[in-house]
Structures are given as C-alpha cells and as structure tokens.
Design a protein around this nucleic acid. Structure first.
Lengths: 252, 252
DNA sequence: TTGATCGGTTCATTATTTGAACCGTTGGTT
DNA sequence: AACCAACGGTTCAAATAATGAACCGATCAA
C-alpha cells in the first residue's frame, strides 16, 4: 500500500464515537510508527484535511472536507437530490427511511429521514458504515453487485449462507429484508439503487419498529420502496436492470 | 513536498467550473507525470475520495468526501450551527450574508444565505475561494491574524498597501469594507470570527447591492454584523479580542 | 493512412519514506 | 518532591517506495 493510502486510512479512524484522537492513539490504531503518522498528519493538516484542536493537540477532521463535499454535491447531487424522496418515503410509511452508498467496498450511510407520525422511531446516525451481514441494505446491494465483487465481500462476512438467502429473496421479490438482526426490534426492508451503467451503487431502506409491523404496513413499505427506488435511480440517470424493473412494475 | 501533499493538491483542481477532468488534464494542471498522477488517483479512488465517471473515464470527487464532511459537522458543527444566524443576518439586512473560513492559507466559502426581501441580490457559490485582496472578508481576517501569517499572505497579493489600509480600518472600526472590488456594484462589509484560542479563523460578511446602499442601511449592516459575529464566535466557544469586543459593544 | 491524443502500464533509477531512539512536557502516584 | 509513564514531536542512517521516459492499444480527425 502506498503512502497516500496510509494517510487516507487515518481519516477513516475518526468516528462519531471518537471524533478526535491524539497522535499516539492514531499511530496505534493505524499500525503506524509515530513519526510516520505525524508526518502524514502534518501533511494533511497543511491542506486543511485535518486540524489540531485544544490544549492536548488532538487531531480531528478539518474544514477542507466541507469544501470537497459541497463541490461533490454540486457536481453529483446524490444526497441533496434524494432528500425530498427520502422524506416522502418516511412520511408515506410512517417509519425511518435511509439512503446508503457503496464506497470502497463499504456501505456508507448518506442520509436519512424520520417520520413525524410516531414518537417511537428507529434512530440513525449519518456517516456510519452499515454491516453487510446484518442489514437489508447490505443484502440488496450484494444481490445486484457483479458476482465477483459480491463474492469478495461475502468472503469477509461471518454468515455468508444467511446473507445469500436474503440476496436470493431480494432478486425474487425486488426487495430485501431483515428482522432484528442489526438492532433488536428493527424490521429493515431495502431496495438497491443503480447508476447510469446499471451498476448497483447503494440502497434505499426503511427501518421500521418491529412491533408495529403488520401485513398492511409491510405492503405499503415494499410498494413505496419500489416507487422511491425507481425515482432516485431515475434522478441519477440510472438504469434499473430489466428483471427488477418488472418486479417494481415500472417501465424498463 | 511529500507524496500525500501532491495527492491532496489534485483534489484542489476540481472546481465548480470544472468538476471532472481526464488523467492527462489533471497531470498537466498539477505539473505531475502522467504515471505518477495515475497512481495517486487510483490510490484515492480505492478509498472513494475520487471516482471515475462516464465513458471518458474522467475523474471527479468521490462519495467518501460526504462521509468526512458529515463527520466533521457532527464533531465541529461550524456550518450547521452558523446557518440560523446567517439567515437572520440576511433577513435583518435584506442582503446576502456569507460565512468563510481560513483553510490552509486560503479563504473558503462555507455557507451563505439570501434575503427574501429583494429580487436583485448578490449571488454566491459554495466551496469557492475568496481573494484576500478584493474582499472585505479577506481584509477582516488579515487584520486579526498573527502578524507573521498576515505578512506571508500579504506578500502574495497584488496591492498589499490598499489591503493594509482596509485592515487598519477594520481594527479601528471593528468591520472591514470593500466597494465594487470583487464584483462591480457589490458593497461588501465583513467582521472577523475567532476560535477558542482567540485566533482569527474566518469572517462573516454581508454583500449588498451597491446602488441600494444608504447611510441607514450601512448602519444596520455594521450593527447586525457585530451582533452576528459575536454570536457565531460565542457559539463556537471562541474569544473575541478585547479591543474588538469594545468596538462591538459586547462583554469581553 | 497518418498523426495526435487519450487512459493506462512498465521498470531501472532515484529520492522519499521509514522507524528506533531521542527530547522536552505533562499529569498522576508514591 | 521525586518518580514514572505517556504524551507530542524530532532526528538521521537504512530501506523502501515514488518517479518518469518510453511504451501500449484505442479513439478520433484530417
């Protein structure tokens, strides 16, 4: 792995739980020498990608990332364009809707919307990674990924057989499902999303409170998901594969 | 300059005007060998920081930057926290308000808010860089930067003497001003912002349509800017320097 | 056909990265 | 007060990774 990769890996160490860390902690977590880590960090700091905060000189993500994100959204309005659809999906189902993207082999939460209908709802955090083995989104994405890439990811999962079942189900019905796997009492349903080349790039999901689930609600969720999934894919100029388009009952 | 710096410099080549570029164009613009450029790009692509789009395989910013930005805002809510203040400032003055941040020696637009009062307003774009020599924000930031850093930046400007005058004005009155320098018929007024250490980190500005400017409007703008500047600095736990706090008529 | 440019690759040369040991500080314990 | 451990940061010879001229096949225009 090159130097740049090591530097970028450092950025992945920052999480919601630990948004800033000291030099030694970062070096330890990344498996780097302290001196190496320091050089990478100062180099990134000089471009504003990270910055040092407080008297302890801890490092955290810098303001330059905001510019990059604004530029990305302006060039490819993935998030902003999907937000209205996401909100309507949350409203129509009365549950929490969320959007995720496949980035470098991981499923990254991009956006979410809560419904106002219920006091109890599934809460989410932005910028987290979803585990492929325990989410409907993961199964939906894997189901429509090129076999080679799907296999590569499946090989890293604890229970590939179970996930394969969910993938088959998704290919047959047009949506994937998990019940109380990611979090207890959360009923997840998801559909895949596609880019212009017809490649699966992410998923759209509804996370419902399991105790509330009824056949009627379930029917609403799958129908709304198909509609919203087709809409977001269309917004991006994406191509839904023909078999899936039939299941979703939309024009190819 | 290290390898990481070169890679990160590539990211700065993407702009609103040119959100995606081919390999050769990037190499040329960055002054890199094509092979070197390619290696850096593929390394960044593997982490999702850039991606390739379309049949021409042009490169553009990738989805990973969205995660980084969301994480940054969650840890240090610079933009989100300031938005309400920015909107109130635009409403109170009837003009365009914007917020900028000093990042790696450049002034980066972070956010802006339009007023609904007038049909004609100064329009802005996010994620652009403001020139120090032609904006009130630039003068305001330079006026309260450590002398060494200010001098370093001033040395790169076309007309440092004029900018020094604006800086002096800002130190005396608490706000900086430019008329028709950045764009014709735009009257800019700005105040500096500070972090916890009392270091100047950015500026808050109002860009007004020059023909509309009256002594009364001008008084409103400077008063509202002082209020809003103090508020944003306070929101961040920042320290306004004592002399400036007196000018703004706020508690030290 | 020719020629120019594109994205991408190769590999000997070269320059950069690397990491053990070091420094000065800080903060808690004895 | 003395001690110790951990912190952020620096040094420099040794080792590794970055570099770039030349090259490939493809595309496009003349």
């Amino acid at each position: 792995m090159g130097t740049v990769g090591k530097a970028l890996d450092l950025l992945d160490l920052f999480t919601h739980q630990q948004p800033q860390m000291g030099l030694s902690a970062l070096a330890r977590a990344a498996g780097l020498n302290k001196a190496t880590c320091h050089r990478l960090l100062t180099e990134m700091e000089s471009r504003g990608l990270v910055e040092q905060a407080g008297p302890a000189r801890e490092y955290r993500l810098g303001p330059a990332v905001l510019r990059l994100a604004a530029l990305r959204e302006s060039a490819v309005p993935t998030r902003d364009a999907a937000m209205p659809v996401l909100r309507r999906l949350a409203d129509a189902t009365g549950e929490t809707a969320h959007l995720s993207h496949l980035v470098a082999g991981r499923l990254q939460t991009l956006a979410f919307a809560y419904s106002a209908h219920h006091g109890i709802k599934v809460t989410m955090e932005d910028a987290d990674f979803l585990p492929f083995h325990a989410t409907a989104s993961g199964a939906a994405v894997l189901a429509f990924l090129p076999e080679a890439e799907a296999a590569r990811i499946l090989a890293t999962l604890p229970a590939p057989a179970v996930v394969r079942e969910r993938m088959d189900h998704c290919r047959q019905h047009g949506w994937a499902e998990t019940v109380s796997t990611f979090e207890k009492d959360v009923h997840g349903t998801a559909v895949p999303l596609f880019d212009t080349a017809g490649t699966c790039t992410g998923a759209l999901a509804v996370a419902a409170a399991a105790p509330r689930m009824t056949p009627a609600l379930h029917a609403t969720i799958t129908a709304e998901l198909a509609r919203a999934g087709a809409e977001i894919t269309a917004l991006r100029g994406g191509q839904v594969p023909a078999p899936l388009a039939r299941l979703w009952q939309i024009p190819a």
